[in-house]
Design a protein around this nucleic acid. Structure first.
Lengths: 356, 356
DNA sequence: ACACAATGGGAAAACGCTTTCAGTGCGGCT
DNA sequence: AGCCGCACTGAAAGCGTTTTCCCATTGTGT
């Protein structure tokens, strides 16, 4: 049945769009002339004919066939944006930056969501390559360890003239944006140490993610420097989401009730932890437990207590990413560091006095 | 200078992608055979040749040129999604639904952001028409009153076989999703009236937006039925954002301090109002003032007090929108109502006792 | 006035693919 | 044994553009 429907609708093309040929005919000029008027060619056309063509095009509501154009010019005005989850404020913010630059450059953005399936990244790059996209921004954090499939796909894309910027990826032969993850992790360690915390729990996202690794290592590194040891069993891994954070917080406190500060490796998890502390564990924040997040999503300032977190200028990262991909190709495998900054709000305080 | 750069890079095409011709050559078969193997044609090819082609394609990392394919088939696997602001949780949620369906149908999503400029909607539809997109979802609420430019553009798109679904638009000759805005507004009126509020303020987004109108009218309508009059000067209009809500709340309370309940026409504004009440006006919620939002963004449950609001199943709306556009074309100008539901949380309570 | 450059218009090629159409080799039937 | 039909391959047409290439016309310098 399905094939029959396909057959039927495929054969007599259901309806055809206005072609340049028709516009030319309507204006009484040749195809070439019409093209010269409507595409911004360097050849010029008499005022008279120009007007006739423009008029005909407007009358027929002509828009040029982008695929045909792409075919002959072998380039498009499409850029790809690959994220893990559109409905995650982290990626929305990056996407907003990308879209802004795209608008300014009159580019169209193709959005691809991997839904957290690692393999889909390479697949989408392939599809964007097939589309002859001009550039691709890999916004989703990469996975640690070599990813040959993705690397090869990117290489092929580059070979055909495509440009790529990756955000928080490692060992990819493309322009890369390095958000201040490590640095932010260090700042958190300093902040919590300065407040006097010694029993610190860490709620990690998937350790396979580059961002998670960087944040965690920056934190552990600086904590160690300051003489604070974060015990192995004070670290817990979960989904990089609100629910992941909530579950992780519960697990962690059941296991180690003595913890006085919690570092969640992103704000979503921190929000979950906040909810767990309030609803499931009955602990006050920051009176009993301090909580720190990462990213500074807009919501971080709106919860109670307002979340201490590390601000990453996500829109800026999006803008920079696309600009990098659109920029000078010859300088290509470049690296751009984007700094982060600790934002202290109400969710952190000194640890409670021990009553013993 | 720029033109020189263009000239230079335009002439000798910087690098060319692998073509089907090359694959065919490499496999020692004709172009036609290669095409039959790689596009899923109904014609079949000997096992032997099939393998040779597949092998060659893999070796050369061939992906077919989508524009060329689109040209000959005069259809693409692209769908467009037009939103006002990507970095707004309302649209992210809809986008997530759209992307999910797109993934299941192996479609690529082109995301267009109007950045709240009304005119851009029509322009993006034109560009999507040029791309020969298969369908377009207009997620951003429409503006009241006729929009001839947009209507004509959509008509042209339909004429060339494109499908469209609009969310919260009026008088557009396309499939339309009608979220339960009016119904939600009514539910809020009932809830606040039942709690005993009589002095109710309303913080509106731009009245030109269809969603705003519907929510407001539903609310006023039901309030009137219940004998609660919402005075003209208890209504205030502002940007449909957190900051808009905050400013509006301040203005409203300076003008009418006796208000005991606040209905913000979306959650973003409600969040702003909450912040204003707490930080600028020093009023307790819900002890002094009750606050209600609309949309039930994820954040609504995370703020303190948790926000009473109207839930709109946004992802579902996104999914439905694309499915509608992908569905039966002959039934086309259809209307699909998506119900909303009041979610009572902690931000609403009976009004404070008058101490006079 | 005459050669010659410059200008603008149109016919036609090319982009990479799918699909029709014609052709070739083969087995099965009478 | 001869013919038909089947199954497959390959040549070529065509999709809608842009961009050559060539021609006619006009303007310029001497």
């Amino acid at each position: 049945m399905q094939s029959q429907v396909n057959r039927r609708s495929a054969r007599p093309r259901p309806s055809s769009a206005v072609t340049l040929q028709q516009v030319a005919q309507d204006a009484g000029v040749s195809l070439a002339t019409a093209s010269r008027v409507l595409s911004d060619s360097d050849r010029n056309v008499t005022q008279e004919l120009q007007e006739r063509v423009l008029e005909a095009a407007a009358r027929l509501r002509y828009v040029s066939n982008a695929p045909a154009r792409a075919l002959v010019q072998s380039t498009t005005s499409i850029v790809g944006l690959v994220v893990h989850d559109v409905n995650d404020a982290y990626y929305s913010a990056i996407a907003a930056g990308v879209m802004e630059v795209a608008r300014d450059h009159k580019l169209l953005v193709m959005l691809a969501g991997t839904f957290h399936e690692p393999g889909l990244q390479a697949e989408y790059v392939a599809r964007l390559r097939a589309q002859r996209a001009r550039a691709v921004v890999l916004a989703g954090s990469g996975f640690t360890g070599a990813n040959p499939a993705l690397a090869q796909e990117l290489e092929a894309f580059a070979a055909q003239g495509g440009r790529v910027t990756a955000v928080a990826h490692q060992d990819l032969p493309v322009d890369t944006i390095v958000p201040g993850n490590r640095e932010g992790g260090r700042a958190v360690a300093e902040h919590l140490a300065a407040l006097g915390h010694t029993e610190i729990g860490v709620i990690c996202g998937p350790l396979a993610l580059v961002s998670v690794q960087e944040r965690l290592h920056g934190f552990l590194e600086r904590a160690a420097e300051l003489g604070v040891v974060v015990q192995e069993h004070h670290r817990v891994e979960a989904d990089f989401t609100r629910e992941g954070g909530r579950a992780a917080a519960v697990r962690l406190f059941r296991r180690s009730p003595g913890i006085t500060a919690l570092f969640a490796l992103n704000d979503a998890m921190a929000l979950g932890a906040l909810a767990a502390l309030r609803d499931d564990l009955g602990r006050g924040v920051p009176s009993d437990v301090s909580v720190v997040g990462f990213d500074d999503l807009p919501v971080a300032g709106d919860v109670t207590p307002a979340l201490t977190t590390v601000r990453l200028p996500l829109e800026e990262i999006g803008r920079r990413a696309l600009l990098l991909a659109l920029g000078d190709a010859t300088a290509s495998p470049r690296t751009l560091a984007v700094p982060s900054r600790l934002v202290v709000r109400a969710s952190t305080a000194p640890p409670p006095r021990v009553t013993a």
